[in-house]
Design a protein around this nucleic acid. Structure first.
Lengths: 351, 351
DNA sequence: TTGGCAATCTGTAACGTTTCAGTATATTGA
DNA sequence: TCAATATACTGAAACGTTACAGATTGCCAA
């Protein structure tokens, strides 16, 4: 079980895919010259360079990734590190699409490196660094003090985080402005006369948890509304837990007349809980929710939504990592996207 | 004899990750011996083998993928080929998780190879084969006569399809029994007294389109119900298109009193359309829908649902590809899942 | 003794790429 | 004129792995 080629002569131009040796044979040049000609090295004659590149294009030469990787250590791989059981569904595919879109025009491949509940989140990161399996890494579920970011920085591995850190270290990131989202959501609810607001927050521990909380609190004091505590659940809880908890709080004497929800799936549960308690959306209570695909308005037209574009996030993250690999300053590869305000019903939102 | 002088740069034990050479130096053996000892080759002494493996574990040796790949052509990569704009969201992430789960316990990596609307679906396939970028491939959106499957088969690249083909060629697949789903859906509607049924089908062209249609038709005649044509849209249409079309058909004199929907997102649109026409779910019409995550019941409790487990699909597909790579017969790597529970089987499904 | 054989182990040569240290040839400065 | 220098190219080595074709040893039959 081995390759069919056994002759050590270069004459074998017919089979297998072309290599530098093939190209060298066809052009009558040395492999070194061909290699350099293909990457526009300065010490190659213009004429020769053009000739080599022409032939390469003609026969469809593509550098062997294993060869390059073995020699240079460059993998041409970007790894997207995902939590296999925590990440919310649609989220992930959108990010993947966004990343793919950007990587498609480059020699880079996207590999998905999963880790599950049972594992240390650092494990895949260490694996990537130790084995040098990727040239760059994208991580999500970013924490204020994120050991992954610190580790990657220490080991000189380019990366970008979905969400910001707060460690005094500078690195590329892409983030959605959840502070602005929460403020906008509260303002909107206040403008509808809602005064007792509850927040279904992101999971504590992640950076955007406090962003959201702060935005919520800032806007509360701005508009003079009050908060109904709802912090025994987060969007990481199950649908059933959120639903039950919502129903509970809605049955109390002093109950929320407005909700801010950080995730679409969770919003379904909130609304179900509201209705479990015999109350009506739009009359007794209003809900502002983030969503990543434009479906919530079908669920209940009364819902107020803010769109978060995860596909864009994927693209930005990919661009950031590539930029860092390409030598750009990490500090110049940060982006923060602000939503275009709260949308009632289905008005398209370009981001 | 004396191997004290072989060290060219052996002394530099502090650098980089360990290679076979490192291991050879530490054990006092040759690299060949170490290589074979690690893979339990028969001509290595039991004592030596144990010793080598112990040391390898101690210093955390991991074979260099580029080296292996360059030498053997084996990539240890499985590629998941995805349509970047057509695939429905949650779908994809579930499959990825399923695949990851299986691959996690192997030396294999998952790489996502995208293609977009603008491209020929064959392009990524050809790329993978020509560059030998993967040892196995998973494709979805399978067609009865699928050029990708044929090409992969012709070129000896192991693969598995999500959905079956109908070309008389045998290859691994995983499929959800949509014929059974459609029949079950119709029976359920019929048992509720519904007699004029409409089907929101999968996109024509894909294999499970006809499976679904046939199941629908078979059950219709079984229960003596009739079909209201609804074939100007499929689940590949936009939410808005489906919604409008549903509203149209529901405003007619002879309108459906039951729907069968092949996708959850589309079901949202159907229900919206029904309500646009001033009708009420559960009273004027019932809807049976497939779903991949358990959310539809929150949307409208009256909805009837059948769960399709895409995570399972991902796992099965990964297992199939690995099995084929491992030398199993392609025909033994086919699975069809009905309702809840996988059946391994090799026989054709009711056409 | 001789030769044969099995059991272990080993060096060398690839795989395709890039880098290092050159080698020719022409061009220039004096 | 000679040497210095730039221009255009080249072979060899190396990255880490595995396959191939030996080595070396001990043992036993003849």
């Amino acid at each position: 079980m081995d390759r069919q080629r056994t002759d050590k002569n270069e004459e074998t131009s017919a089979q297998g895919r072309p290599t530098l040796k093939t190209l060298a044979f066809m052009t009558g040049l040395g492999v070194t010259t061909v290699s350099r000609a293909l990457k526009d090295a300065p010490e190659i004659g213009a004429e020769t360079r053009r000739r080599v590149q022409l032939v390469a294009k003609q026969i469809g030469y593509r550098p062997n990734r294993a060869g390059v990787r073995l020699r240079t250590g460059r993998t041409n791989v970007i790894s997207l590190v995902l939590n296999t059981d925590r990440e919310i569904m649609s989220f992930v595919s959108d990010i993947i699409y966004g990343v793919s879109e950007v990587l498609a025009e480059t020699p880079y491949h996207l590999i998905v490196t999963p880790y599950s509940r049972s594992q240390d989140p650092m494990e895949p990161i260490r694996y990537l660094v130790e084995t040098g399996s990727a040239d760059g890494v994208i991580i999500s579920r970013t924490q204020p003090n994120d050991p992954r970011a610190r580790y990657l920085l220490e080991h000189g591995m380019p990366f970008a985080t979905h969400g910001r850190t707060d460690m005094g270290l500078v690195h590329p990131y892409h983030d959605f402005d959840n502070h602005a989202f929460a403020m906008e959501a509260v303002r909107r609810l206040a403008s509808m006369g809602r005064r007792r607001l509850a927040l279904l927050s992101p999971p504590p521990g992640l950076t955007y948890y406090s962003h959201t909380l702060n935005g919520f609190a800032d806007a509360l004091s701005e508009v003079g509304a009050s908060e109904i505590p709802f912090n025994t659940v987060s969007i990481d809880n199950t649908i059933e837990q959120i639903r039950m908890r919502t129903a509970q709080v809605m049955r109390r004497d002093v109950r929320p007349d407005g909700f801010v929800s950080s995730a679409a799936a969770a919003t379904l549960a909130i609304v179900a809980g509201i209705e479990d308690a015999g109350l009506k959306l739009g009359r007794d209570v209003d809900v502002v929710s983030k969503q990543s695909s434009d479906l919530l308005h079908l669920f209940r037209p009364e819902l107020l939504v803010v769109n978060e574009n995860f596909r864009l996030a994927g693209s930005e993250l990919a661009r950031s990592v590539l930029g860092w690999i390409g030598g750009a300053a990490p500090g110049s590869l940060q982006s923060l996207v602000v939503a275009n305000g709260v949308q009632a019903l289905n008005q398209p939102v370009p981001a």
